[in-house]
Design a protein around this nucleic acid. Structure first.
Lengths: 194, 194
DNA sequence: GTCTATAATTCGATAGAC
DNA sequence: GTCTATCGAATTATAGAC
């Protein structure tokens, strides 16, 4: 990041090592949580020496910060038919959970690590919040609606990927969207108590 | 438990100590999760020597098992008007979260500890599952419905008490019931995609 | 850039005096 | 029953040789 070297196209040898460390870190943080994911184990997964992790990322906290960088990549929903945005958003979120370890790392770590919880709050405030605000009739209630969507999205991920509640694990993608989609739809566009 | 002594009404001195340990353990496990809740810290909270914790409960795992014993105390919903069971169940669950550290201890620990996750699965299978089955038109789909209720209930608790997402923390009890009640109602008695 | 050696802590658990 | 002392293991992090 700080030194581009002489050739712009030539990747430094260390870049591959850095990337390998990040991948291994994401997997370990996702599988074990913050405190049980050790630098030694991450280094072993990346086939390097533990001291290299320290050299590249300074300490465990900064390594986590780098590994937990995440973009929800929310699609633009303003053009979608209003009664379909719940299912569309639900489907997108399921796909993001399913194919990227980063959200799992963030979730598992956020339960026992303050910095990770801060990051998670920031993620929803900076990414989900604005997306919901763009859809809301009344911008003032956008934060609440985004928060409600978060409860269902996070609860689904917790139940399916962390706790592995059998009936929740058994649902296929279509069933998840069919069950959770209307809930998300109501949180985005509906009213209390109906 | 194993020795009643000579007088049935006289509590042994050790009973108070055991209870103090359990209370402190629940608070620490709830606040810090399984690995960060140390036996030393629990003993300090209970104003006793750390070795006493080991003497009474053997090891950390058994201490957690004792501290995480929990009863959801689900009310009988069979007499409640069918369209009100969602709000009734939601209100009850919020109250259970709010006034007992045990569920928080279980949730925080379950994210990084296998035994705690097993306990959480067992809790829902043994307590929420049957209650939902008693209400379901088709008993075969009761587990799925109970699982869906779990995703929303756990996601709410995670967002409000663990991650402390500001918009979710700001909701008062009535708003929580008004927003989440209909969701739980649909999971209990409704259909997919509507 | 890479690795060895090790410092400095912290934790669960045990042994044994009183 | 209670406490002191400590073991053995594991962790993050650093210093320094090559």
């Amino acid at each position: 990041m700080t030194d581009d070297g002489s050739a712009g196209t030539k990747a430094r040898r260390s870049d591959a090592t850095r990337a390998a460390i990040l991948t291994a870190a994401r997997e370990r943080f996702a599988a074990d949580g913050y405190e049980r994911a050790t630098i030694r184990a991450i280094a072993a997964d990346a086939n390097i020496d533990p001291s290299m992790v320290m050299r590249y990322y300074g300490n465990k906290e900064k390594l986590f910060a780098a590994a937990a960088e995440f973009d929800l990549r929310l699609p633009d929903l303003t053009g979608v038919p209003r009664d379909e945005i719940g299912t569309r958003l639900t489907g997108h979120l399921v796909d993001r959970w399913e194919h990227d370890d980063t959200l799992m790392a963030l979730l598992r770590a956020a339960v026992t690590n303050q910095a990770a919880a801060d990051r998670m709050r920031e993620l929803f405030a900076a990414q989900l919040g604005p997306a919901v605000a763009a859809l809301a009739a009344d911008p003032a209630e956008a934060p609440v609606r985004a928060g409600l969507v978060a409860t269902q999205a996070l609860g689904f991920a917790l139940s399916r990927y962390v706790l592995r509640l059998p009936p929740v694990v058994a649902l296929d993608r279509a069933a998840v969207v069919a069950w959770l989609g209307p809930t998300v739809q109501r949180y985005l566009t509906g009213e209390q108590g109906e």
